[in-house]
Computed example of a mutant assay.
Amino acid sequence: MRIGVDPDVCEAHGQCSVVDFELFPLDDDGYSAVGPDREVPAGEEGTARIGVDACPVRALRVLSE
C-alpha cells in the first residue's frame, strides 16, 4: 500500500499524526511530511486508512492498495 499528501491542500491540522506519528510525521511547522508517495509497512494498512480518513481537508490519499 502507498499513501501520499498534497502539500497544497494540507492545512496542518495534524489529525493524521494523532493516529500514528510514525506513519504520518509532521514537519517543523506542523504540516504533513508524508511526501507524495510513501510505502506503508506491511501490517499497517488499517492504521494508514484511518490516518488518511482523519484528514479534515482530504490532503492525504491512498495511492495504491
Rank of each mutant, 00 (worst) to 15 (best):
M1V: 09
R2M: 04
R2S: 01
V5L: 11
D6I: 07
P7I: 04
V9Q: 06
V9D: 02
E11A: 14
A12G: 12
H13M: 09
Q15E: 15
Q15T: 10
Q15S: 13
C16A: 06
C16N: 06
S17D: 04
S17K: 05
V18G: 08
V18Q: 10
V18K: 10
V19M: 01
D20C: 10
E22P: 09
L23C: 07
L23V: 06
P25N: 01
L26H: 06
L26A: 07
D27N: 13
D28S: 14
D28R: 13
S32D: 10
S32H: 02
S32G: 05
A33R: 01
A33Q: 00
V34T: 11
P36G: 11
P36F: 08
D37I: 10
D37S: 13
E39Q: 13
V40Y: 04
V40C: 08
P41M: 05
A42R: 14
G43V: 11
E44G: 03
E45D: 12
E45M: 03
G46L: 01
G46Q: 03
T47F: 00
R49I: 05
G51P: 03
G51H: 06
G51W: 05
G51R: 01
D53R: 13
A54V: 01
P56L: 11
V57Q: 07
V57P: 00
R58N: 12
R58D: 14
A59R: 07
A59I: 12
L60K: 00
L60H: 01
R61M: 09
R61A: 13
V62C: 04
V62Y: 07
L63Y: 06
E65V: 12
E65N: 14
